[in-house]
C-alpha cells in the first residue's frame, strides 16, 4: 500500500535580489526532499531555522508549487494552488500554525471561525454547522460558551486549541503542524501535544510535525527526519535517530539537548550558520563538520540506507565510505 502522502525530490528555489538593481541570487530553500506520511502516523521534521522545513511543509500542502519534484496525496497529484480542485482538497489536508493569534481573525468570534471550513466546503446542513463547530471546540477541550469569545480574549493555549479545532472541523486526513508549540508556554506545550496525539487516534490523522524542538518531535513522532540546508540528512525511528544519531549534524543537535548529569561531551558547532544563498560545495555541512574530509568538500552524499542497520543517512563518514578526519577542535 502506498503512503497517504508522498513527496518525491522536492526542490524550491527563490530568487533573492541584493538591492534594487542587484543581480538576483538563487536560493535553494528546499533541495531534493523526499518524504512520506502514512495514515495514523506522524513524521517529525527537525532542523534549525532557515533549513527549509517550513517551506517543505508548504510544498507538501500545495501552498507553493515545487520547482522540481512531485507531491501526491492519496495517489493523486497535487493540483495547482488556488484552483477549485486544490481548494476542494483543503477539506482533506489542514495546517496548524506557529502563531495562533496571527492565524485567527481578530474580528470574528472563535465559533464562527471554527465553523468557517464547514461553510467553505459546504459540509452538512447550514443550520447544523454551529452545533458542529461547538462539537469541534469540545473535542479540543474548549467550552461551548467560548465559541462567542474573540481570539484576544483567550489564552495562548486556548487559541492554539481553537486553531486545531478549525483545522480538524472537516475531519481531514493530513495535518501539517508548523512549529505548533514553540509560541506556547512550556506547561501548555505538553497539553497541546497530547491533544494532537488524541486527535490522531480518533481520526486516523497523518501528521507532518515540523519543529526545532527535538524532545517534542520525539514525543509525538513515529519517524523522524533531520533537515540541514534544504536536504534531509538522516531519517529513521525517533528513538534510534535521537539516541544514536548517525549524521554528525544530528549528533550535534542531539548533544545540544540539556541532560541532567551529563557533562563535557557537547558538540559545539563551529563556523557560520548556513547561508542558503551561498551553499558550500560537496556536502553542505562540511565547513562546520568536525569529521569532514577533503572528499566531503567535493562530493555531495546521498540519503541511503546504512550498511550496518539500514538507517537512512546522507554522510560519507557515517556510511563508512571515508575515514573521519582527525579533528583538532574536539572538546
Amino acid at each position: 500500500m502506498t503512503p497517504m502522502l508522498e513527496a518525491k525530490g522536492l526542490v524550491r528555489r527563490y530568487a533573492m535580489r541584493r538591492g534594487l538593481m542587484g543581480r538576483s541570487v538563487e536560493v535553494r530553500a528546499v533541495d531534493g526532499v523526499s518524504l512520506s506520511v502514512e495514515r495514523g502516523r506522524t513524521l517529525g521534521l527537525v532542523g534549525e531555522s532557515g533549513c527549509g522545513k517550513s517551506t517543505t511543509g508548504r510544498l507538501v500542502l500545495g501552498l507553493e508549487a515545487p520547482d522540481a519534484g512531485s507531491v501526491a496525496f492519496q495517489d493523486k497529484p497535487m493540483p495547482p494552488a488556488g484552483t477549485p480542485a486544490w481548494r476542494a482538497l483543503r477539506s482533506r489536508m489542514q495546517m496548524v500554525f506557529q502563531d495562533p493569534l496571527g492565524a485567527l481573525d481578530r474580528r470574528l468570534p472563535i465559533g464562527a471561525q471554527v465553523q468557517e471550513p464547514l461553510d467553505i466546503h459546504a459540509i452538512g446542513e447550514a443550520k447544523d454547522r454551529p452545533a458542529r463547530a461547538i462539537e469541534a471546540l469540545r473535542a479540543v477541550g474548549l467550552r461551548p460558551d467560548q465559541a462567542a469569545r474573540y481570539p484576544h480574549e483567550l489564552s495562548g493555549g486556548q487559541r492554539q486549541r481553537a486553531v486545531l479545532a478549525r483545522a480538524l472541523a472537516t475531519e481531514p486526513a493530513l495535518l501539517v503542524c508548523d512549529e505548533p508549540i514553540s509560541a506556547l508556554d512550556v506547561s501548555i506545550q505538553a497539553q497541546v501535544m497530547n491533544l494532537l496525539m488524541e486527535q490522531q487516534e480518533r481520526l486516523g490523522l497523518g501528521i507532518l510535525f515540523i519543529s526545532h524542538d527535538l524532545r517534542a518531535v520525539r514525543q509525538v513522532s513515529h519517524r523522524v527526519a533531520v533537515m540541514y540546508l534544504g536536504t534531509i540528512v538522516e531519517e529513521g525511528e525517533p528513538d534510534a535517530v535521537l539516541h544514536d544519531p548517525a549524521h554528525p549534524y544530528a549528533q550535534a543537535l542531539v548533544s545540544a539537548i540539556p541532560h541532567p548529569g551529563r557533562t563535557g561531551n557537547r558538540i559545539v558547532l563551529q563556523g557560520d550558520p548556513p547561508n542558503p544563498a551561498d551553499r558550500p560545495t560537496g556536502c553542505a555541512f562540511h565547513p562546520r563538520c568536525p569529521v569532514a574530509t577533503a572528499f566531503c568538500a567535493r562530493e555531495a552524499p546521498v540519503l541511503k540506507p546504512r550498511n550496518s542497520d539500514g538507517r537512512l543517512v546522507a554522510c560519507h563518514v557515517a556510511q563508512g565510505d571515508v575515514a573521519p578526519a582527525v579533528t583538532q577542535r574536539a572538546a
Binding site: 501552498l63 481548494r87 483543503r90 474580528r107
Partner: peptide, 26 residues
C-alpha cells in the same frame, strides 16, 4: 504572508471570501 488571511486561504476559501469577509473588515 503570515496572518489570518494565509490561514483562511489554506482552509480552501475563495479570494472573495478572503478579501470580503476577513481582510476588508480588518
Amino acid at each position: 504572508s503570515q496572518g489570518y488571511a494565509a490561514a483562511v486561504r489554506q482552509l480552501g476559501a475563495s479570494p472573495w471570501r478572503i478579501y470580503g469577509r476577513h481582510v476588508l473588515p480588518n
